[in-house]
Design a binder for these strands. Structure first.
Lengths: 120, 120
DNA sequence: CTATTCTATTGGCAATCATCAATCTAACCT
DNA sequence: AGGTTAGATTGATGATTGCCAATAGAATAG
């Protein structure tokens, strides 16, 4: 059903690409990949962990002090996480207090769990 | 307890980075990131989906026929997945039949689920 | 042996990504 | 106003990644 020719009995030149169809379209794969990619960076994971385990919003300078990169890099990753909808912030005077958008993070987790289960 | 100075009452120049500690070490974050990164590519996801949903091992030419990239690129991603321990293959004559190492994929999924839950 | 086929590898190019110094902006204080 | 500070943005640089043409290797067929 998957193959016209039994796997181990092909002869040279027999075509073998008749029936297999990818269960994941290119577009779907790109969507899953984007979900994974936003998480697939150690600095972003550390930021999410710090924000996620803090009861209160966290000042950028607190993040900066704990991370092994300089301020513009922290700011860069915060922006990516913000653009992905996973975090947001309030401004108080000079300080920016970031927090996790927990429902967005939960939705991402749920989506990923489903998508990874669908891999087989 | 997290902050010596209440968040919204800081004065200019007050230090604010005393008590917050990252719940994820740099090394741990890099490990999680590596787990995510191997999955964070549409071609690799499509390969895993095809292998994962096939009862039998799948010939490289079958993969190649379904994927929007050329043969060396397929071979490249197969190598990365192999080096990550997620897939393996048997050689039968000229053909290579790849399959998912299901216990390795399951372990990865379990690890990721735990790690993502730990984010908050 | 020679020719052919399937897959892996090499090497090079283009695009993307990560980082930081320098600069900018907005808010604060005197 | 003038000086200072937190954080964002810009722009440049180096590292990494993804892709493919060409080539290499291994197995098969004649």
């Amino acid at each position: 059903m998957k193959d016209l020719i039994p796997l181990t009995e092909r002869k040279r030149g027999d075509r073998c690409c008749d029936a297999l169809v990818s269960p994941l379209t290119t577009a779907a794969a790109e969507a899953v990949s984007a979900d994974l990619a936003i998480l697939a960076h150690p600095i972003r994971l550390q930021i999410l962990a710090m924000l996620g385990t803090s009861a209160e919003p966290v000042c950028v300078c607190d993040l900066e002090a704990e991370l092994p990169v300089k301020q513009p890099t922290v700011s860069h990753h915060l922006r990516l996480l913000r653009e992905a909808g996973l975090i947001d912030y309030d401004k108080h005077g000079l300080w920016a207090y970031y927090y996790v958008r927990r429902e967005a993070l939960a939705a991402l987790r749920t989506r990923l769990a489903a998508q990874l289960t669908a891999l087989g």
